[in-house]
């Protein structure tokens, strides 16, 4: 009897252990929906619009992956996560991927067991301060009260920046961007610090954006990108190549307008391979042959996503800067589809 109990226990434990390591792509396809972790609300990057539809630069990455894996850009279940909950949500399998301004760092990549598939926004940490305070440089912030989102790299950069410049500050920890905005506007902190794209996005939602200035100093490198769990390389490859595809499409001039036309055949072999007219790239990834056609036709290429959500014609008004194609002096450099 003892033996059978023991064996039974082993069997139960074995079953329980099996659940976690299943393939994410199979799970997503079986579920028919992608669980995508986004931020709790950052205008231009991920925020629900007036119809309750999630919109934004990070949201587009989720939709692109859903279009590739499921053929349907709307088959996404958006899971809002805070700086503190995002990694637990990903590690526990609550979300299949994170697309939420997450900085690629050594610790997160190696020690926390995550896989950064690439970089979709090159950013750096900045400071925003009301114009009336008359501060022109971050070096004048000695003694300031600083609002900061907890559980972020900015928290650590801030400590390093003030310590290395022999300045003091008073941190006011907040959970979300919305909370930080409320505290900052109420004057409970002098300065708000986060990634400078986040500052621009936040400032765009203010009643009077011109009353606030973003300091010229960028105190850190913040390469932001989508994250998946470590260990499921097939899923990681899929998300990575969707991102690369978005960037390559811009470089190759494939847009949401002309993708259908180009899919019928062109004389550019690179485009032929990417759009699935040549080679077996989709099936190798475990998805449809026309996956990139689905992606581009539903969300557009990288440049289109950028211009639509955070570009210079939007209220957020971010310049391409480092996020231009390498041919235009930026850092975006898509690896070849070959």
């Amino acid at each position: 009897m003892k033996k059978s109990v023991f064996l039974g226990t082993i069997a139960v434990a074995g079953l329980a252990a099996g659940a976690v390591s299943a393939q994410t792509l199979d799970e997503v396809q079986a579920r028919g929906e992608l669980n995508c972790g986004v931020s709790t609300g950052l205008a231009g990057f991920s925020a629900p619009d007036s119809d309750g539809e999630w919109q934004g630069f990070d949201v587009a990455v989720c939709r692109a992956v859903a279009a590739a894996a499921l053929g349907d850009p709307s088959a996404v279940n958006f899971v809002p996560t805070t700086g503190q909950t995002r990694f637990t949500a990903l590690a526990s399998g609550e979300v299949d991927m994170l697309a939420r301004n997450t900085t690629w760092t050594f610790t997160r990549d190696v020690d926390l067991r995550f896989e950064f598939v690439g970089i979709n926004y090159y950013d750096g940490q900045g400071f925003m301060i009301p114009r009336e305070l008359g501060v022109t440089s971050a070096m004048e912030l000695d003694g300031a009260t600083v609002c900061i989102q907890t559980g972020t790299t900015t928290e650590l950069n801030l400590a390093d920046f003030f310590a290395s410049n022999n300045m003091d500050y008073e941190p006011v920890p907040v959970e979300t961007n919305a909370e930080a905005q409320q505290q900052y506007l109420a004057g409970a902190c002098d300065v708000y610090t986060t990634d400078s794209s986040g500052l621009a996005a936040t400032r765009a939602t203010f009643e009077d954006p011109s009353a606030h200035v973003i300091m010229p100093e960028i105190i850190s490198k913040e390469p932001l990108g989508p994250v998946v769990r470590h260990g499921d390389n097939e899923w990681g490859d899929l998300v990575r190549w969707v991102l690369v595809g978005l960037i390559a499409a811009e470089e190759l001039g494939v847009t949401s307008d002309n993708v259908m036309e180009l899919a019928e055949g062109t004389n550019n072999p690179s485009i032929e391979r990417m759009l699935g007219n040549e080679g077996e790239f989709g099936p190798i990834l475990g998805i449809d042959q026309d996956w990139m056609v689905n992606v581009i036709s539903s969300v557009g290429n990288y440049g289109e996503i950028f211009e639509e959500n955070i570009g210079e014609d939007t209220p957020i008004g971010l310049a391409r800067g480092l996020n231009a194609q390498w041919t235009d002096g930026g850092l975006l450099y898509a690896w070849p589809f070959r």
């Binding site: 226990t9 434990a13 329980a16 252990a17 976690v20 470590h230 260990g231």
Partner: peptide, 15 residues
């Protein structure tokens, strides 16, 4: 025992 075993194996899976 099942809970403990679950923790150990999940930690192993996550590395």
């Amino acid at each position: 025992f099942w809970l403990g075993r679950n923790i150990v194996s999940n930690l192993e899976d996550l590395g």
